[in-house]
Nucleic acid binder design. Structure first.
Length: 369
DNA sequence: AATCCGGGGAA
DNA sequence: TTCCCAGGATT
């Protein structure tokens, strides 16, 4: 009995595989990282695509693999240049981990991206998803690659109502995929699921009438496709009030600061700034004290020039922006002084790009008399 | 298990 | 506004 049941199930699974893969081979988008199967380039694309849309990634990918075409090129590159190439893409630890991992590949694996699951999965920044994606696409290994797309698609196909926000739930989908994945075409199977999630089986209103695996879908059969997947909500982000200042001297040089090597926006550059407290003192007074005590700088500080709001996933910055002229600098100041031209060589978070844009616009059209 | 870590586009 | 996107590390 069990054998017969299993045979029927295997037959259904085989049909699902064939329908999915033939659809993918027919309908897949033309994307830069699909031009070849270079494991390094597949890897770069997968890291960029973490929590980031395809359209956003394309121009970054093209520039990145041109600038750093091989494992060795990236391993030997200056971190400042690598961060600059990532500027604006977000989650900057991704690229710092990638460069660290690529150095290890150069050292320990002779520059060859290791095809072994344990070896590759042990590299920095390579989690369960990236491991499965890179090894299945580049080396044709039948390993699950479960991302948000796959959980959405499979929750509907199999009518799985577990909360996909819970870490443990991912393993349920990995087990399901191990039973479903094609041993002949694991690359097309994994990419097919993700492509389906991106093009057809979308979050809000899936195009079930166009779906190549509609006849295999429990949610479609039950009319529950809009209720799946189940995902609990996250709490709202907190708000931080900040003050930042674009400081220049008589020569027009600008003062910038490198952020710490850990935590938010690690190793990126910024304009001098502090978190401000409400009440007691004005923002200007807090900024003056900060510059003198923490930066060893005395300066003439302008009136408030405007407020930059920047929203992170878990945090909102409200940054009051000031301009200032430096009067005196102690030799212990940790700030770096650069020309406006040199400024472009440094990687800034988008919030501080907004601040610099304010300064440039103010310089281009000086306040009316 | 919960939190941290960016930024942008779609609904 | 809200969601969530080809997630991973840290605590």
């Amino acid at each position: 009995m069990n054998v017969l049941e299993d045979k029927l199930k295997q037959k259904d699974i085989q049909r699902f595989r064939d329908d999915l893969i033939s659809w993918f081979e027919r309908e897949q988008r033309v994307l830069p990282w699909r031009e070849d199967q270079d494991p390094y380039k597949v890897w770069v694309s997968e890291v960029m695509l973490q929590q980031t849309r395809v359209e956003t990634v394309i121009p970054y990918f093209l520039r990145f693999v041109e600038q750093f075409p091989t494992v060795e090129a990236l391993a030997d590159a200056d971190e400042e240049k690598v961060l600059k190439a990532w500027e604006g893409l977000g989650y900057y630890s991704r690229v710092r981990n990638l460069q660290s991992a690529v150095k290890e590949v150069k050292q320990e694996y002779g520059g060859i991206v290791p095809p072994d699951e344990k070896d590759f999965g042990g590299l920095k920044g390579v989690g369960p998803y990236t491991k499965g994606a890179v090894l299945s696409i580049a080396y044709n290994k039948p390993i699950p690659a479960v991302d948000g797309n796959v959980m959405r698609v499979m929750s509907r196909i199999l009518s799985i109502w577990d909360d996909i926000a819970k870490p443990k739930t991912r393993t349920i989908f990995e087990d399901a995929i191990r039973a479903f994945i094609s041993k002949e075409k694991p690359s097309e199977f994994n990419q097919g699921l993700m492509e389906l999630g991106a093009l057809i089986c979308t979050p809000k209103s899936p195009s079930c009438l166009l779906c190549p695996v509609q006849k295999h879908c429990s949610a479609f059969e039950e009319g529950t496709e809009r209720e799946l997947p189940v995902k609990s909500k996250k709490k709202k982000p907190g708000i931080k009030t900040m003050a930042a200042i674009v400081l220049t001297d008589e020569d027009g040089q600008v003062y910038i600061h490198k952020r710490p090597s850990k935590g938010l926006l690690a190793n990126l550059w910024e304009f001098p700034n502090l978190e401000t407290q409400k009440g007691i003192k004005t923002e200007r007074e807090q900024l003056t004290a900060f510059l003198e005590n923490e930066c060893g700088i005395q300066a003439d500080i302008s009136d408030l020039q405007g407020v930059v709001e920047h929203v992170f996933t878990h945090l909102v910055w409200n940054i009051s922006v000031f301009f200032g002229k430096v009067k005196q600098v102690s030799d212990t100041s940790e700030l770096k002084k650069v020309t406006k031209e040199e400024l472009e060589q440094f990687a800034f978070p988008v919030s501080h790009q907004k601040i610099w844009k304010m300064a440039e616009e103010a310089a281009a059209s000086p306040a009316a008399p």
